[in-house]
């Protein structure tokens, strides 16, 4: 029953997002294309009448609202996100090409921050109020507050521009046709170090504080005392009894903050000119490529939402008590 409720909730949320996406062009103040042809920054891009007609047709701007809404939904279900005005290419293709890089960044950041944050957080909790804890706590509190793109900028100028340790931009060195897989992988990692580090560092602080709090609340629990009484090894007490219980609140929080992480990734990609969806969306904004903006937005949002849905399923698997709450 409850599960069904959550599911409908997600369906409704998705519908609302789709609707917003659909109605946005209609709610724009004035005619978007008048605005488009105005003098705007460096990249002036006036679209041809043909392109404007295409856009209007795609979003049904020339049709009665209800009918165009339905056809828009039908298109989406067939995976059609429309046609980019600027690149003159299907939005779906562009998104598919860019998506892996963003996913790579986000997953890398989640991996690093979670593993490191959990380790340091538990360490801090076990050595609470000792020197190690105090130093770590101060350090993490500092970094958990600075936004990722500022850290990214800092890294960019220190490690890439000044020290020249890492490339300034991009995800791959282009124009190198015959390289082995290992070399390509090395190149990819070389490019990804700074963006992932910037994203991870902000998140690391949050994860650390979270894990520390959770562990501090778990350590005095009765089952931890039972575990100690049983004479189990410290390692076993910590992993099997402590962390296993911390896993539950941890997973929900990881997924809950996924939206913020994606936001951070968008900015970090712009800092490092990393060819993911974030860079694409800002480029699309620059050239007022509305179908592309909307397509990227839709894909990001739906991905985050489905990740959240997955986390709820995961929670049910991890916590034996939830399963029976329904039965």
């Amino acid at each position: 029953m409850k599960k069904l409720g959550r599911l409908t909730e997600y369906v409704i949320t998705v519908l609302i997002i789709l609707s917003i996406n659909f109605f946005l062009p209609r709610m724009m103040p004035g005619d978007p294309f008048l605005f488009l042809s105005g003098d705007q920054g460096e990249q002036i891009s006036a679209y041809s009448d043909e392109q404007i007609r295409q856009y209007k047709a795609c979003y049904g701007l020339d049709q009665p609202i209800f009918r165009s809404y339905l056809s828009y939904l039908a298109d989406l279900f067939r995976g059609r996100l429309g046609q980019s005005l600027y690149f003159n290419e299907s939005v779906g293709h562009i998104v598919l090409r860019r998506l892996p890089w963003t996913v790579f960044l986000v997953c890398g950041a989640i991996l690093f921050s979670t593993v490191l944050g959990t380790a340091l957080g538990s360490l801090s909790a076990f050595y609470r109020n000792r020197l190690l804890d105090n130093v770590l706590y101060g350090f993490m509190m500092f970094f958990s507050e600075i936004p990722a793109f500022l850290i990214g900028l800092f890294f960019l100028f220190v490690f890439a521009a000044s020290l020249g340790l890492f490339p300034l931009s991009g995800a791959l060195t282009s124009f190198s046709p015959d390289r082995s897989v290992v070399q390509v992988l090395k190149d990819i990692i070389h490019h990804a170090v700074l963006p992932v580090a910037a994203l991870s560092l902000t998140r690391l602080g949050g994860m650390y504080l979270l894990v520390r709090n959770i562990m501090i609340s778990i350590i005095p629990k009765a089952y931890m005392r039972t575990a100690r009484a049983k004479g189990l090894s410290r390692y076993r007490i910590f992993i099997r009894h402590g962390l296993r219980n911390a896993l539950l609140p941890l997973t929900t929080r990881i997924f809950m903050s996924l939206g913020t992480l994606v936001g951070g990734a968008v900015l970090v990609e712009n800092v490092f000119a990393y060819p993911g969806l974030g860079l694409m969306i800002s480029q699309a904004v620059m050239v007022h490529d509305y179908p592309l903006i909307q397509g990227i937005f839709l894909v990001i949002t739906l991905l985050v939402l489905s990740a959240n849905l997955m986390s709820e399923v995961l929670y049910r698997v991890l916590d034996p008590r939830v399963k029976d709450g329904e039965g």
């Binding site: 909730e9 409704i12 949320t13 609302i16 997002i17 996406n21 946005l24 062009p25 709610m27 724009m28 103040p29 978007p32 605005f35 809950m256 996924l258 939206g259 913020t260 994606v262 936001g263 951070g264 968008v266 900015l267 969306i281 800002s282 904004v285 007022h288 509305y290 903006i293 909307q294 990227i296 937005f297 990001i300 949002t301 985050v304 939402l305 959240n308």
Partner: peptide, 24 residues
């Protein structure tokens, strides 16, 4: 609560980008 829950999980920056892009 439904509204709040829904908005909590939305990635805020992309939404803001879209809104800012459309509203100027």
């Amino acid at each position: 609560m439904r509204i709040i829950d829904g908005m909590m999980v939305l990635p805020d920056l992309p939404v803001m980008i879209v809104l800012a892009a459309f509203f100027g």
